[in-house]
Design a protein around this nucleic acid. Structure first.
Lengths: 319, 319
DNA sequence: CTGTTAGCGCTTTCAG
DNA sequence: CTGAAAGCGCTAACAG
């Protein structure tokens, strides 16, 4: 790899001049500029990122802390990451995946950090500029920036809407119980319930696949609980519900109305009947969080909190 | 942030001694070691990654080149990345996402590179140690390392298996035609066909969603082509097929047998009837490619090519 | 066993 | 307008 010295030599100028023409940090005569650029092209010169970073103390990398112990991403996260990546690239930032299970003894000095899926037990402070995706735990919420869906409001609205149709009982299969998002959605759910509602709420247990979990729950509860409406956390769970319905010759939505919150598969149209779901606007979440973080890094003021409004999409599984 | 100098001063030793105790690169007396470590802890010292990299010319980062112009990953890629990430973390490598639509003017000197989804037109040489996921184009195959599925063999075997059941006609909805994997699968498909097979082959056009594409193709061809068996590239396409079947009151598998090649949704059990598919062993692909690349970086000899054997899983959609 | 010192490649004063 | 030189924080000979 050619260095700045090689270019300087070839162009017959000094190191610093080369640096200046590349960074536009001082006026350079046209002739010099041309010579430098030509030399650079000839040698296929690209500035060494590490040397530059060391000198400037600006890494242009944004880290994304993955919460999963296995390093595995769910569909929701992937969609968000895709749109973060898009913004980062536009703004010339690198995106580094940082599984949190690695406690390294060296220190990759990122300019900013995105934290995914806050848990209720996440209470440690972070020194780098950072933004949470989702509501952080109460312990740190006052000092944190975050971007979140309107989970509680959405869930309340959704439940109220369903209650106009529920005849016998409603079941909500929520995400795992250590996530703040589950708490918020449960809160919204309960807010909407009336005194005489026959309702059930259960959290995903992470023991088996989501589809299998939904299937099992239904299998256990259906005979004895008099249900006719079910809200599941996502469309993968919905597949378990559909399977249960098919096997037990239940008609969706007549016998069992179903709606999924997160449409990760982009395939709700291809469920039969088509699956109602809530559009969480993953792309918008990602865009907002990345844009805000870059602002934060560059000392541009941003709001402590941004809310991305979801969109309830009623389809055949609910009519 | 505390530097190595601060630690040295506090511990009353020299810079290089500190460096040595941290890198275990020379024997240091127990007393010194303790003092240094204590000082480091007190100052919360972590070595500056960039300085270290500049000095050693070893970044400990592996880049992953995403082929998509939008930066979007499909499910197959995501699964593979997850398992790459797992290995990288174990081996203390960072993973950097590198969308190929970014032409930056600085140069992030990664130690190794993973290239996804080779296209037939990918013929440029790469200087960093790198491994392809999938077969690279003929132009560069002799000089490239790669890890791939046994696509051609699998497809031949699968087709032969289906031909024992096909009564009228077989349709293969393949991935996009500029991918080497599509070529290999098509080759295997054709190898298995006999003279009197009534077959059709079509590539995904990337214009509409995969599910919609499969649905449309079937919609157009079904009335006039006398089909009873269909192979689709993945389970998302299969959703389109199932929808078509439901709407036209076709029984799967009696009227239309279906098998998907890539099971990205992990939900084949939750199709009704359960969806036959080919297990591409994404985790194994990722693990192999990451492990091999790290070997390559460290001058450990590895085979030019590794093949991960797929597994055809027959379920109700084919019985 | 420990300290001195010369770089790694680049940026950035400061003189010319 | 251009160049010389110091320094970013660390590693790795080389001396002692």
């Amino acid at each position: 790899m050619a260095t700045i010295n090689d270019v300087a030599k070839l162009a017959g100028v000094s190191k610093s001049t080369v640096s200046h023409v590349f960074n536009n940090t001082k006026f350079t005569s046209d002739g010099v500029k041309r010579r430098v650029l030509a030399a650079a092209k000839e040698l296929n010169y690209k500035s060494n990122y590490y040397a530059k970073t060391l000198a400037t103390n600006q890494s242009q990398v944004i880290g994304i802390q993955l919460d999963s112990p296995t390093g595995s991403l769910d569909m929701f996260q992937q969609k968000v990451i895709n749109s973060i990546l898009k913004i980062c690239t536009e703004k010339e930032y690198y995106l580094l995946l940082m599984p949190n299970f690695s406690e390294r003894h060296d220190y990759f000095p990122i300019d900013g950090l995105i934290l995914m899926n806050p848990k209720i037990q996440d209470t440690q402070a972070v020194e780098t500029p950072h933004i949470w995706l989702g509501r952080p735990s109460q312990a740190i919420i006052d000092t944190s920036y975050y971007v979140d869906n309107d989970n509680q409001a959405m869930m309340k609205q959704l439940t109220q809407l369903l209650l106009t149709k529920v005849k016998t009982g409603i079941l909500f299969i929520n995400a795992a119980d250590d996530m703040t998002v589950s708490q918020d959605r449960e809160k919204g759910f309960r807010e909407a319930l009336t005194d005489d509602t026959n309702y059930y709420h259960i959290n995903y247990n992470r023991q088996i696949s989501q589809a299998a979990f939904a299937y099992e729950v239904l299998n256990n509860m259906w005979p004895t609980h008099n249900l006719d409406t079910i809200i599941v956390d996502n469309d993968v769970m919905a597949q378990g519900v559909y399977k249960f319905a098919t096997e037990n010759q239940l008609n969706i939505p007549a016998d069992l109305a179903v709606i999924a919150i997160s449409e990760s598969l982009e395939a709700s149209e291809f469920f039969s009947p088509t699956l109602s779901c809530v559009d969480l606007k993953e792309a918008q979440l990602g865009e907002t969080i990345a844009t805000n973080l870059i602002h934060l890094i560059n000392d541009v003021k941003i709001p402590k909190q941004a809310t991305i409004t979801t969109d309830i999409k009623i389809k055949d599984s609910l009519r």
